[in-house]
Design a protein around this nucleic acid. Structure first.
Lengths: 172, 172
DNA sequence: CTCCGTTTGTTTAATGTTCAAGAAGTGGTC
DNA sequence: GACCACTTCTTGAACATTAAACAAACGGAG
């Protein structure tokens, strides 16, 4: 792959990544692949579930009455409802989550963290936090941490199906 | 979840993430989830394969004679050999890669990018680069791009099974 | 009240990933 | 050359994810 010519291209010449952009992108891909893998393994070993399932339990634990509507949970976790359905089915089989009907909307379901699920979280959270610390925060300066936060916030924002004000489109 | 007490803990109290660290970590998880998802969808639609498979073709295209030993490719892509085996099997079925025996080591296999595979890459690369640009580089200042690169390099380095000098452990 | 477009959540099948086990080849040692 | 620890790569089964299709309920318009 070569870089685009300096002169004005006749047809829309694709704008490749510069050498520096390529380096950045490659680093991102490598780090995120390794990190996701590392945390998946850590949690599979210590908590018997992949990283994203653990994240679901955390979201529930942080929510009022330790419960969330399926759609709300899917949105918070940035996954599809389909994927969530499968995941909750599995967590339910483990006894860590149970489903409850929503009284005000007969289509709706709550995912509710069970006592047992909360227990798993309490037991495994320290180890997981330690893993995150060791892989990420211990290695970055305060400035880098702040920078990482802002960068990721920007990227996430650009990819959202338009979270804030989505139901108030005329305000935009 | 609450923060650790200020006084010296009697038992090893788990060191939770600070409020700021939590914010950073949450942003990272959200952005990386959304981004991976976005690129997977883009490539599945336009190239008929997930992001990581596309990455494998790129690695091959960049290599001498458009070929790599399986282990080498797995290391470069940061995935297990098992996962690679399955992936190459699929790409082979598509006619985008073929296997070749290694003459100097009868256990060895080369994964070789076919002409057809190269063609797919040539056709779909511009669209993919545009997606990456739009999701990441267009939104970040030059300083942020540089910062992102360095941060990710640090994280990746910390998670490597010790790439450089791994075969020379006495030098460390 | 009925109609109808939308939302909610699940299901199925195809696809991808992981884990553990194993076949085959290598290279060094005795 | 027989042995043995190690490397290379694959396999099969269990598990996870995706995409498309669907049933049920909602809620506003007429």
């Amino acid at each position: 792959m070569k870089t685009a010519p300096a002169s004005a291209p006749r047809t829309e010449e694709p704008r490749w990544l510069t050498r520096e952009e390529q380096r950045v992108w490659r680093s991102y891909i490598e780090a995120s692949t390794l990190l996701e893998d590392h945390l998946d393994r850590q949690l599979q070993r210590d908590a018997g579930m992949p990283h994203i399932y653990y994240g679901l339990l955390v979201k529930l634990a942080e929510s009022p009455h330790r419960r969330l509507r399926m759609t709300e949970l899917a949105m918070q976790a940035k996954i599809t409802r389909s994927r969530l359905s499968h995941a909750i089915a599995r967590l339910e089989k483990n006894g860590w989550v149970r489903r409850e009907d929503c009284p005000s909307d007969k289509r709706g379901q709550f995912a509710v963290l069970t006592e047992e699920g909360y227990e798993v979280l309490r037991r495994t959270a320290p180890g997981h936090v330690a893993a995150v610390r060791q892989a990420v925060f211990e290695r970055l300066s305060p400035e880098q941490q702040e920078s990482l936060g802002e960068i990721m916030r920007i990227i996430a924002e650009g990819l959202q199906p338009d979270e804030a004000g989505a139901d108030l489109p005329w305000l935009r």
